[in-house]
């Protein structure tokens, strides 16, 4: 009996995370990138979604379940962006630590003031997000809050290095403030754009430009021809600066509207990894450069 106990305790010791890195599973590339920034070499980050994939149409894969099963912290965007795969991952992973309400469940949107919370959520309006626009990651103000929250949470999971995480989060915030001065020098203020998808609202609010029309009349639904015609008519009069699209979208509608109006299309890098970006600052530099 004693031997069995010893064997058991050895097995438990072997599987205990006493001196292992904190295993972070992040859904989107920018979340994984931020976790690496705050966690440094004390975390081991797995990112589920690739930058080439449309974050709205991800399907759960068994390999994602295997990763989530071993996670100490699951970090996700929230505001229903991961609704198509995250609930099934959480149930399939059998990892109580990452269930909602537990410390291993880190919802980035909890630190964000959501824009565009709809008053009507009927699907006759398309695939609307009832909790608000989920694309808040191009907002420096929100990123600062998320970084601080993430630092605190990593500190809870790994108290030995709590100071390290807090320090990195503070450094990140300072760097955002510094870069913000540079970004605010950009010539975006007052500019008008047309966008394929409601992807740049937070950025527009913070940088003082406006999105005057959308290729997608209703989110997630291809534009009807009547909508496109009225959009073209409006654009000819208003002469917006550019049509904004992202690489995972079908470029045809944007190119069509561009050919009818003479307004150029810009494929904006939408997440870390796009446009050669290696981290969030790099991404923001690339986004702002592409909008200018």
């Amino acid at each position: 009996m004693q031997r069995i106990l010893i064997l058991l305790s050895v097995i438990l010791l072997l599987s205990s995370p006493a001196c292992a890195a904190v295993k972070v599973v992040a859904t989107l590339p920018w979340i994984g990138s931020l976790a690496k920034e705050i966690g440094g070499d004390k975390v081991d980050v797995t990112t589920l979604v690739k930058v080439s994939q449309d974050p709205h149409s991800i399907e759960a894969k068994p390999s994602m379940i295997a990763a989530t099963r071993r996670a100490d912290i699951l970090m996700y965007n929230g505001l229903d962006l991961e609704i198509g795969y995250l609930p099934i991952l959480m149930e399939s992973a059998r990892n109580p630590v990452i269930n909602p309400g537990n410390p291993g469940n880190f919802n980035c949107s909890a630190y964000v003031t959501a824009l565009e919370i709809p008053t009507s959520t009927g699907r006759e309006n398309g695939d609307v997000h009832p909790l608000g626009n989920p694309h808040y990651h191009l907002s420096p103000a929100n990123m600062k809050k998320i970084a601080v929250g993430m630092g605190e949470r990593l500190g809870k999971a790994d108290p030995v290095h709590a100071g390290f995480y807090r320090g990195n989060a503070a450094r990140f915030s300072t760097q955002v403030d510094r870069k913000m001065k540079e970004w605010q020098g950009s010539r975006l203020k007052g500019k008008q754009f047309v966008s394929q998808h409601r992807f740049f609202e937070y950025l527009a609010a913070e940088f003082g430009f406006s999105i005057v029309g959308y290729l997608e009349d209703k989110p997630g639904i291809p534009p009807g021809s009547a909508h496109v015609q009225s959009l073209i008519a409006g654009m000819v009069k208003q002469k917006p600066h550019a049509i904004l699209s992202t690489s995972y979208h079908d470029q045809k509608p944007a190119r069509f509207v561009s050919s009818k109006t003479g307004v150029r299309t810009v494929t904006v890098p939408h997440d870390v990894g796009a446009g050669g970006s290696r981290d969030w600052f790099w991404l923001m530099d690339a986004v702002i450069a592409s909008l200018e």
């Binding site: 929230g78 505001l79 229903d80 962006l81 991961e82 609704i83 995250l86 609930p87 959480m90 909602p100 469940n105 919802n107 949107s109 909890a110 630190y111 009832p130 909790l131 600062k144 809050k145 601080v148 929250g149 605190e152 915030s173």
Partner: peptide, 15 residues
């Protein structure tokens, strides 16, 4: 900068 996250909804399970 510390935000209380407890009162926010999680967005888990569709609403």
């Amino acid at each position: 900068l510390t935000v209380d996250s407890s009162s926010k909804t999680s967005g888990f399970f569709g609403g």
